[in-house]
Amino acid sequence: MAESEWSGLMAAAQAGNGGAYRRLLEEVRVWLCRYYGRRLPPSMIDDAAQDTLIAIHQKRHTYDSSRPFVAWLAAIARYKWIDRLREMKRHSTEALPEDIHVEGHETTVITATILETLLGQLKPAQSTAIRLVKIHGLSVEEAATRTGQSVSLVKVNIHRGLAKLAGLVEKEDPAHG
C-alpha cells in the first residue's frame, strides 16, 4: 500500500472513521510482523506487534498527516523493539521447548544476521553469555559451566551486554530501522 494511502487512512482514523482505522491496523500489523521478524525471536513477534498497535492507538494524535506515515510508524516500532530488548534483560530466561514450531528459515537467517552484527559489537564474554542463555536457552548455571565464568559473572555479562545492545540500537539511525 502506498505511503500516502496509509497517511490518508490515519488522518481519517484521527477523525473517528472506524472502517479506515481497521484497514490501516490490518496493513500495519503485517508491516510490524515483518519488521519484528527481522529483529526478534519468532516467539516474541506477535507480542511486540500487539504492543506496538496499542502504542499506535494511544498516540495516534501525535501523527501529523503532512509528514511521512512510515517514518512515524518505524519510530514507534523501534521504540518498542528497544523496550523488548530491555525486557529480555529484566526477565529470567525460560528454556525453549524441543518441539518449537519454526515457520521458515529466511526470516530466521535475517534475524540471526542482525543479532550477530549487534552481538559482534559486545565484549566476547558478554556476547557468549547472551548467546548461550538468551538465544540457545541454557540456564545461567549451564552457561557458567560451559564458559568457565562464575554464575554471578554470567548474570552480570548478560545484564551489561543487553544494556549495551539496547544502547547500540538507540544510537542506530532510525531511518535505517
Binding site: 482514523a13 484521527q14 473517528g16 472506524g18 482505522y21 481497521r22 492507538h57 494524535h61 501529523d64
Partner: peptide
Amino acid sequence: MAGLVADLKPVRRR
C-alpha cells in the same frame, strides 16, 4: 483489533 477499533474516538491532532 476489533477492541482497538471499538475504542476509536476522534482525537485532536498534536
